[in-house]
Amino acid sequence: MAPIEFYALDGCPFCAKVESKLDELGVEYTTHSVPSSHAERTDVEEISGQTEVPMIIDPDHGVEGMHESDDIVEYLEETYGSAA
């Protein structure tokens, strides 16, 4: 299984929410810290067309560039949680 790629900004409460869920579920992931300036988030923009974080890529499930912390948490719960 390939780890989830997690793009986050230090100090971002929405990113912390996603990271907490990843840790709670014991999901393997790699964190990529992004710059605070949206204009410098070229990696994120190339993947998803947006500069918002948090963002995940889950190569094992064909997810590329999922945004919105609530959507990500719901996805993680459905895919890796006890209901999975």
Score class of each variant (00 low, 15 high):
P3T: 00
I4L: 09
E5K: 13
Y7A: 01
Y7M: 00
Y7P: 01
A8E: 08
A8V: 00
A8R: 03
G11A: 02
C12Q: 09
C12T: 07
P13I: 04
P13Q: 08
P13F: 06
P13S: 10
F14I: 02
E19G: 15
E19H: 11
L22I: 03
L22M: 04
L25S: 02
G26V: 04
V27I: 08
E28V: 05
E28T: 12
T30V: 15
T31H: 00
H32F: 11
S33T: 14
P35Q: 06
P35S: 12
S36N: 15
S37M: 13
H38I: 12
E40N: 11
T42W: 05
D43V: 09
V44R: 07
I47C: 11
S48R: 01
S48N: 00
Q50S: 14
T51K: 14
T51P: 02
V53L: 01
P54F: 00
P54M: 04
M55I: 02
M55E: 08
M55C: 03
I57T: 10
D58G: 10
D58R: 05
D58S: 10
P59Q: 03
P59W: 01
D60T: 02
D60E: 14
D60N: 14
H61Y: 13
G62M: 05
E64G: 03
E64N: 08
M66S: 02
H67L: 09
E68V: 06
S69C: 07
D70I: 10
D70Y: 11
D71T: 12
V73L: 01
Y75G: 04
E77N: 11
E77H: 09
E78W: 10
Y80M: 04
G81F: 08
S82P: 08
S82M: 10
